[in-house]
Amino acid sequence: MNDLSETFRSIANAASGLSPIIFVLYKGSEPPPFAAPMPRIPPGPVEQVVDLWFTEVIRQAYKDNPALHDGAIMVKKTSAGQLIVKGWSFRLFPPEAPTESTVNRGSAFNSCHAMSFISEVDCVFLLSNGECFQFQNGRINPMASVDPIGG
């Protein structure tokens, strides 16, 4: 299991009970196309490192502004592999997925799948009810949750 998968499985487990959380990991200096920020006051904290303990950042951000739960968290993946939050509460509006789509599992799931086809997107994670899904280049990888302390 790679560190990236372990990180998001751990966050999914610790964030169980929160609204679904979408992370869009992207390459390049700017967030990918087909994603637009929805301004929030106060805004979510940026320049945070996404790691095994990022759930505490999410909980505090939602406490400071409950509207932040609506939309995706944009995460820049650096050349060294570090994950840095660049924005909160982004609306996703990808074009229809270019392949035969999966059974409709709701707008969050289907938007994550379609966003994963965008060339500037490295991958997308959807965390919901303790479940974790990774979408990459149109592939959907369901991952079992993991205990954040003991693995």
Rank of each mutant, 00 (worst) to 15 (best):
E47G: 09
V24Q: 00
I73G: 00
M143L: 12
F90V: 00
T102P: 15
A72E: 02
S19L: 02
V50H: 02
G151V: 14
Y26M: 12
I149W: 14
N104Y: 14
V75H: 00
T55A: 03
P66C: 15
G81K: 02
D64Q: 05
I21T: 06
Y26S: 04
F109I: 05
L25R: 00
R9G: 03
F125Q: 03
M143I: 12
S16C: 11
A36D: 08
V46A: 10
E100L: 15
E131W: 11
K77L: 14
R59T: 09
V146L: 05
M38F: 01
F125S: 07
D3T: 14
P45T: 15
V103Q: 11
S16H: 14
T102F: 14
E47W: 11
N129E: 10
E6A: 13
L83G: 01
L18G: 08
E100R: 14
L127W: 09
S16K: 14
D3K: 13
L18K: 08
P148M: 05
G81A: 05
P142Y: 03
T7E: 02
E6Q: 13
I73M: 12
P37A: 04
T99Y: 08
S5G: 14
V85K: 03
E56L: 12
I149T: 09
K86F: 07
S145D: 13
I73R: 01
N141F: 08
M115T: 07
A72Q: 05
Q136L: 15
R91E: 03
P42V: 12
E30H: 03
L127Q: 09
G138Q: 04
P45C: 11
K76R: 10
M38D: 03
A14G: 15
N137W: 10
S16E: 11
C132V: 04
Q60D: 13
W88G: 00
A114D: 02
C123Q: 06
P98V: 15
A36T: 13
S89G: 06
R9T: 07
D51T: 04
F93H: 13
K77A: 06
P32C: 03
C112F: 01
E47A: 09
K86C: 10
L18P: 06
A97M: 15
T99E: 09
V75D: 00
P148T: 00
R91L: 10
I58K: 04
G150P: 13
A72V: 01
G81Q: 03
N2Q: 12
G81W: 07
P148G: 04
L25H: 01
A72L: 05
D3R: 10
Q136W: 08
A35D: 05
T102L: 15
I41C: 08
K86P: 02
F109W: 11
V103H: 08
E120R: 09
E47R: 13
R9H: 09
N2V: 15
K86D: 10
E100N: 14
G150F: 15
